[in-house]
Computed example of a mutant assay.
Amino acid sequence: MTIATAEPDAPATDRGAVYLERARKVAELVEAEADAIEEQATITDAVFRALAEAGLFWILVPEEYGGAGLDIVSAFKVVQEISRADGSTGWAFMANACSTGVAVGFMNQVGAREMFDGPDRGITAGMILPTGSAVRVDGGYRVTGKYQFASGSAHASWIGAGFVVHDADGNPIVDATGTPDCRIGFLPRAEVEFLGNWNVMGMVGTGSYDYKVEDRFIPDKFTMETFSTVPTRPESVYELGLLGIGVGGHAPVALGLAERALQEIAGIVAAKQRPGYATVVGDSELFQLDFARHEALYRAARAYVYEAYGDAEATAAAGGTISDEQRARMRQTATWAQEVAGEVVTFAHRWAGSATVRNPSALGRCVRDAAVATQHALVDRMTLVEAARAIVPAYQR
């Protein structure tokens, strides 16, 4: 497989423009394949190859390893464009690109180089929260666990498995504060048993299968601390942390869904006639008022997401420490973007009438996808409560 690369010495902003243009070209294929993607519950081989050949899976991999080495905002814009084309594809792609970024940024660099530097550059997927268990052995860990929601796993070459380290008696190993030793390991996909179990109402094409790992050895070089705050790479993007990259990636997926819903409803109402309207629905002041308000919501969310993440990375790039407030704002925007997407998609659905009822329907997919995306545990509204604790003091000065 040929993997394209941008000009290696180009500034990050220029590389971002290059990869965004590649994403737009791939998005044309994604839109054409969207029905097939939903039908087979994972991205099609044609879309996988297009994403790979454009180098998009590795937008958060350093240039040293042949990746794009993008800043977080440029990477998120790529995710948004793929998500605009199809929510499921965008979600699966986000899971691959962001987990790959986390792995290369925080894992032992001997292992990272083996996984990502070379012609068979790895793609990761899988559940990295510590739901499995492991025992320490010479040179690594023996891991057992059953996992869910492995988005993008059908085409991933490495599968993540989060685990808590236990002693020989089966007791969790804890530090002086009582915190368990939690880690993430990556295994070649051949060592993982996939269980299927992905029959859902929305985000159908993400291929978020269940899987299990049975007493598998994972060398130290392919592991990392689950809650590490110290990157093993010098690039500023990794200073955003596991949550900043991994959770943050959900925000541009939401933005893509909202953007697509606005595009779809604008086209639908241009020709739609309903009783009580003097002409087409799109000419009514009631629709125009509603559209203007929701389009503003989308634009505000997009601006805030990119401002919050760009500001945090700029602080790290300048040699500063990302503040608690900046990290809170990243969490705030990741959740808020989901809420905005839900509102925008619902608005479009209500005005579309029967246009979302019959399949296939791009807007119908947006409705189903948004309904699932807003249920993710990492964008629960309690994250806004947690974020507020660091944001409120800024208004009390």
Results as ranks from 00 to 15, higher is better:
residue 1 M to A: 07
residue 2 T to I: 15
residue 3 I to G: 05
residue 4 A to C: 13
residue 6 A to C: 09
residue 6 A to I: 07
residue 9 D to M: 15
residue 14 D to I: 13
residue 23 A to Q: 12
residue 25 K to E: 12
residue 27 A to W: 11
residue 30 V to S: 05
residue 38 E to I: 06
residue 40 Q to R: 11
residue 49 R to S: 09
residue 50 A to R: 09
residue 51 L to N: 02
residue 63 E to V: 01
residue 64 E to N: 11
residue 69 G to S: 06
residue 73 V to P: 06
residue 73 V to R: 07
residue 75 A to C: 12
residue 76 F to N: 02
residue 78 V to Y: 04
residue 83 S to W: 10
residue 88 S to V: 04
residue 88 S to D: 04
residue 91 W to K: 13
residue 92 A to D: 02
residue 99 S to A: 13
residue 103 A to T: 14
residue 112 A to P: 05
residue 113 R to I: 06
residue 115 M to W: 02
residue 123 I to T: 02
residue 132 G to A: 08
residue 135 V to T: 15
residue 137 V to Q: 10
residue 140 G to V: 06
residue 151 S to V: 02
residue 152 G to F: 02
residue 153 S to M: 08
residue 153 S to W: 01
residue 158 W to Q: 05
residue 158 W to S: 00
residue 164 V to I: 15
residue 164 V to F: 09
residue 165 V to P: 13
residue 172 P to Y: 08
residue 172 P to T: 12
residue 176 A to V: 05
residue 179 T to V: 06
residue 188 P to W: 09
residue 189 R to S: 09
residue 195 L to Q: 02
residue 199 N to E: 12
residue 200 V to D: 03
residue 201 M to N: 07
residue 206 T to E: 08
residue 209 Y to T: 06
residue 210 D to W: 11
residue 216 R to V: 00
residue 221 K to C: 12
residue 223 T to C: 11
residue 225 E to L: 08
residue 229 T to K: 08
residue 229 T to H: 03
residue 235 E to R: 01
residue 236 S to D: 03
residue 242 L to A: 04
residue 243 L to N: 01
residue 249 G to N: 15
residue 252 P to G: 00
residue 253 V to L: 02
residue 254 A to R: 00
residue 257 L to A: 05
residue 260 R to D: 02
residue 263 Q to Y: 12
residue 264 E to Q: 08
residue 267 G to K: 00
residue 270 A to Q: 11
residue 276 G to Q: 09
residue 276 G to R: 11
residue 279 T to V: 14
residue 279 T to G: 15
residue 286 L to R: 14
residue 286 L to G: 13
residue 289 L to T: 10
residue 291 F to Y: 14
residue 292 A to P: 08
residue 293 R to D: 13
residue 301 A to Q: 03
residue 306 Y to H: 14
residue 312 A to K: 02
residue 317 A to L: 01
residue 317 A to E: 03
residue 317 A to W: 01
residue 322 I to N: 08
residue 330 M to Q: 01
residue 335 T to Q: 13
residue 341 A to R: 04
residue 344 V to L: 05
residue 346 T to Q: 15
residue 352 A to H: 07
residue 356 T to W: 10
residue 358 R to E: 05
residue 360 P to Q: 00
residue 364 G to T: 02
residue 366 C to S: 10
residue 371 A to V: 04
residue 373 A to E: 07
residue 375 Q to R: 13
residue 376 H to V: 07
residue 377 A to F: 04
residue 380 D to G: 04
residue 381 R to G: 15
residue 384 L to P: 12
residue 386 E to M: 15
residue 386 E to K: 14
residue 387 A to K: 09
residue 392 V to M: 03
residue 397 R to H: 04
